[in-house]
Design a protein around this nucleic acid. Structure first.
Lengths: 186, 186
DNA sequence: TCTAAAGTGGAGTGATCACTCCGTTACAAA
DNA sequence: TTTGTAACGGAGTGATCACTCCACTTTAGA
C-alpha cells in the first residue's frame, strides 16, 4: 500500500537531465533535439521521456526551475535595508541572466505564464510583493505600482539585451530609465 | 542586355505570399509549415520558395516589412507639435501591435536585428531620431537618451502583453512607468 | 500573333524529430 | 542474498518539414 521509496538513480538522472537541458537550451535554443539533451546529460532518450513525458513538459520544467531560482534570489533580497536598491539589483540580475540567451525568449513564449506565476502560490510573486511594499513604504517606489507591473517589466527587460550592440552598457542605460520611471513622480 | 521587365503575376504573387505569411505567422506562429503559407496565399509551395529561397528568408522579409511600416508611422508622427506625446503614441502603438502575438517574439528572435536596423540606412531609426531630438529640445524627454535606448524599449514593451491577464490596462500602466522614466529627471 | 524566357504548382525526396517499445540493468525491501 | 519491480538505453517508427525538380502555363517584347 505504502509507496516504495524513489530510486536513487532515478532522482539523480532527473536532475542531471534538468541541468543538461538548461545548458543546452541556453546555448542552442529550445529547438535542439531531445537526443542532444539526453547526450549532454549522459542518459538515454528513453530516460528523458520517462521523466518528462513530452518535450514541452521538459521545456516548462526548465523554465519553472529558472523562475524558482529567481524567487530564491528575490527572497534573499527581502532582507536588504534599502528595498529600492534591492529591486534595482533584482531587475539587473534578470536582465543579465537573460542577456543574449535566445532560450529564455523561447521558454517564456512556450510556457503559459499565468500558470507558472499563479500569484498566491508561487514564491517569486510573493517575494516580489514583499520587496515592493517595503520599497514603497520607504518612498523609493511610486505607490501605484503592483506586482503585475514588476513582473511585466521583468519580462520586458529580459528582452533588451537581444540587440546587444553595446551589450551591458545599453542594458544599464535602459534599466536606469525603467527604474527612474518606478520612482515616485513629482 | 537590358533586363526584361518583371512579370506582373510574379509581383502579384510575391506580395500575396508576404501578406499571407504575415497573417499566418501572427495567428499560428512562425513554426507553421511553408505549405500552410502557400495555401493561405493561394499559390503552390514552389512559388513561395521561388520568391524566398529559405523559410528564414521569408520570416525575415515579413519582419522587415513590419519594421518598414513602423517606420512609416514614426515618420508621420515627426510632424506632430508635441514630440513627447508622439513618442508616447509610437511606443503604445508598438505594444499594441505586438499584443498577444507570439509571432513577433519569434520574428524578433529569428532575425539579426543589427542588420535589420542598421541605423544610417533605415527609415525607422532615422524617424525615431528626429522624433527624439525634437522631444528633447522641447524638454519632454531627458537629454541622455539615444535612439538605441528607444529601440531597446520598443523591443521591451513589445513583450509586455504576453502576460495579458488584464491586457490593455496592464500594458498602459507599464507604458506609463517607462514613459515617466524617459522624462527629464529632477 | 508568335515565341523565348520567366514563372508556376505540387508530387517527390531526404532529413530530422518526438515519442514508443521492450530486453536489460540496478535498486529497495525482505 | 534474493527477488520483484522500477528505471534504463537506444534502435525503431511514423509523421512532418524544408526544399527540389520539371512538365506545364503565362507573360513581355518583337
Amino acid at each position: 500500500m505504502t509507496a516504495r521509496a524513489p530510486r536513487a538513480d532515478a532522482l539523480r538522472n532527473r536532475s542531471r537531465v534538468l541541468a543538461a537541458a538548461e545548458q543546452v537550451f541556453v546555448a542552442r535554443g529550445t529547438a535542439v533535439s531531445t537526443e542532444a539533451v539526453a547526450r549532454a546529460a549522459g542518459v538515454g532518450i528513453g530516460t528523458v521521456f520517462r521523466h518528462f513525458p513530452t518535450k514541452a513538459a521538459l521545456i516548462e520544467a526548465v523554465f519553472r526551475e529558472r523562475l524558482r531560482r529567481f524567487g530564491e534570489e528575490a527572497d534573499q533580497l527581502v532582507e536588504a535595508d534599502d528595498a529600492g536598491q534591492a529591486i534595482w539589483i533584482f531587475l539587473s540580475r534578470v536582465a543579465e541572466v537573460a542577456a543574449g540567451k535566445q532560450a529564455w525568449a523561447d521558454a517564456f513564449a512556450a510556457t503559459n505564464l499565468r500558470d507558472a506565476l499563479t500569484p498566491a502560490r508561487e514564491q517569486l510573486p510573493r517575494a516580489l510583493g514583499s520587496l515592493l511594499s517595503r520599497a514603497q513604504e520607504q518612498g523609493a517606489i511610486r505607490p501605484d505600482v503592483t506586482v503585475a507591473e514588476l513582473v511585466a517589466l521583468m519580462l520586458a527587460v529580459s528582452r533588451v539585451p537581444e540587440l546587444d550592440a553595446e551589450g551591458a552598457a545599453l542594458r544599464a542605460r535602459v534599466l536606469t530609465i525603467v527604474f527612474d520611471g518606478l520612482r515616485p513622480q513629482p
